[in-house]
Design a protein around this nucleic acid. Structure first.
Lengths: 215, 215
DNA sequence: AACATATCGATAAGATTTTATCGATAAACC
DNA sequence: GGTTTATCGATAAAATCTTATCGATATGTT
């Protein structure tokens, strides 16, 4: 089954469906979703089938049920807790990012080596010295770590996370992390994303130049 | 050819190769890269073949040449300029994010509706009122727009970008953007990324529970 | 100089993801 | 009540992406 790729699209459906619901709709068809999100309707049905079987011929999916199913499937309905390490600009942006709540993600505390932020709160969350990470993570049974430190410190901090029993690292640095078996790393690579954008843009401009140049 | 997927991996190779070079290495083999980055060596060769043909039997790739080829291919060697719209926390984090320089990305100015930041500078970049976006973008021939506004404003601002002749939108909001033909949208979806992490983590924990539970 | 070895790059096979086709069915209409 | 229509879900085909195999070739070794 299309596991990974579908998974990545589900949150997009969810956001879209919530908007439709707010607009007062009661049902939605894969055809309509596909049209609005510029996807293939068959793909939409397959994706949704991972999480829900509420579709009916002629009418489509009941919006409420579909949204519930998606939220449950994505685990957005039960909150997961996380620690964030690296309270720099990006880290702070994430600490204040209120849409995490909708994903069922709650950042409980931050850690940093900078003494001028230690002991204070950011977005209502305490900032501890980095040394406290392993112990606190272990005692609070933390499973998710968000990594927003400078690239050079990334590997070292990742190891601290692992030492604290953290099992999934959301890596916002551009460093490649080497971790033991049984640890999940999810890279949020802006470089990769920008490379794709860059590439698509030049393809676009190249095409236009060609079409315009050879009439 | 493996276009999209390969493209997304190239920046990772580049970052890795730069580290090896700093460590004094002169050549590198696909075998070694694959080992360190936990990839398949054939895949590494295929990916690199998109950008470079400097590989030689027995020795591998000369590091300097390979890095140059990658940077040129990714367009990181010639700077692209961008406007950023939405000088909130995330926007500011990106304005101050110094690693964009390595990607050949330079943010020239920011735009916001908040009068308390207009006219000031952030990270040395001027912040203009949003209304000025289309005109300035057009006059400066800006091609890339970075979107870090609140979700509800995303579509509206995207349209302003398009009106200003911007051709590629790097969308950090969770909104789905509807844009005309010939406009590139690159989504940086934290929701998608978190969904993947969440999914992999629960699969992991589920497996362990199962294995531990049925000895 | 012959031989062994590590590596690339090409080609083929396998896996995953996307798209197409089609029968079944609920709702609307006559 | 029969017919038409929009839709789902299953199955099949096509496309893309990943991994395996293998010949060719630099480099080091005997």
């Amino acid at each position: 089954m299309a596991m990974n790729a579908s998974m990545a699209r589900l949150p997009k459906y969810l956001a879209y469906l919530k908007i439709r619901q707010k607009q007062g709709e009661a049902t939605i068809s894969s055809t309509k979703i596909a049209e609005d999100l510029h996807l293939n309707p068959v793909q939409v049905r397959k994706d949704l089938a991972m999480a829900s079987h509420a579709g009916r011929p002629k009418t489509g999916y009941p919006l409420g049920t579909l949204i519930d199913d998606l939220e449950r499937f994505l685990g957005f309905s039960n909150v997961s807790e996380a620690f964030l390490v690296g309270a720099g600009r990006l880290g702070r942006a994430l600490l204040y990012y209120d849409q995490f709540a909708e994903l069922g993600l709650s950042i409980l505390a931050a850690f940093d080596t900078d003494p001028t932020v230690q002991g204070f709160e950011l977005a209502g969350k305490p900032v501890f010295p980095l040394e406290k990470l392993p112990d606190l993570a272990r005692r609070m049974q933390m499973r998710i770590g968000i990594l927003t430190v400078p690239t050079v410190a990334a590997q070292e901090v990742a190891e601290l996370m692992v030492a604290g029993g953290i099992r999934a690292i959301w890596n916002f640095t551009s460093a490649h992390l080497t971790v033991p078996e049984g640890i999940v790393v999810q890279n949020e690579s802006m470089a990769a994303s920008f490379a794709m954008l860059s590439n698509k843009l030049s393809a676009l401009l190249r095409n236009e130049a060609q079409e315009g140049g050879t009439p």
